[in-house]
């Protein structure tokens, strides 16, 4: 009974983390907060994968660890979750790198402003009048000023 309730708590926690992350992604406007929400949600997802192989009272799946015949937890989800964690970290690192570039280009990380800037730039590049924004009231509205910023190298990668 004890192990069952522990499992229930863990499942609730994992799903709760995913839900918190999803809500954060939907409700926040700051890109860095959205990224953190994604990290929280990913932690929940990874926990769910580990739970898929969980057995109450079982030992770690290491050969020669514990007496023979002792039930072990399923090692496959643990191998899978390692991969998933590594992928998640990689994607988040990439996201932070892109965030830095976004901030250098527009001087803000607020998604509403950024979308305005982006739509404006797309329209300007295409040579069409700006379409009305979903966030702005009808009519003309001045864009928030872009802070004067240090010009970075447009393609400053490695090398």
């Amino acid at each position: 009974m004890m192990s069952l309730s522990l499992e229930a708590i863990l499942y609730t926690g994992a799903i709760g983390l995913v839900v918190i992350g999803a809500l954060g992604l939907v409700l926040s406007h700051h890109l860095f907060r959205m990224l953190l929400s994604l990290a929280v949600a990913e932690a929940g997802g990874n926990l769910l994968v580990v739970l898929a192989g969980y057995r109450g009272g079982a030992i770690a799946p290491i050969l020669g660890y514990g007496a023979p015949g002792t039930p072990m937890v399923d090692p496959i989800p643990q191998a899978l979750v390692l991969t998933a964690i590594v992928i998640g970290v990689g994607v988040q690192a990439l996201a932070v790198a892109v965030l830095v570039r976004v901030y250098r280009a527009y001087g803000t990380l607020d998604l509403r402003d950024l979308v305005e800037h982006m739509q404006g730039d797309i329209a300007k590049a295409a040579g069409i009048p700006r379409s009305t924004s979903t966030h702005a009231p009808g009519g003309e509205r001045p864009l928030p000023p872009v802070p004067a910023l240090v010009r970075h190298q447009p393609r400053g990668g490695r090398s």
Partner: peptide, 18 residues
């Protein structure tokens, strides 16, 4: 490496990762 491409990328990235 344009600003608008970065904004599009980050939105795409967040959606795709989720």
């Amino acid at each position: 490496a344009t600003g608008r491409a970065y904004v599009a990328t980050i939105r795409y990235l967040l959606q795709s990762a989720f």
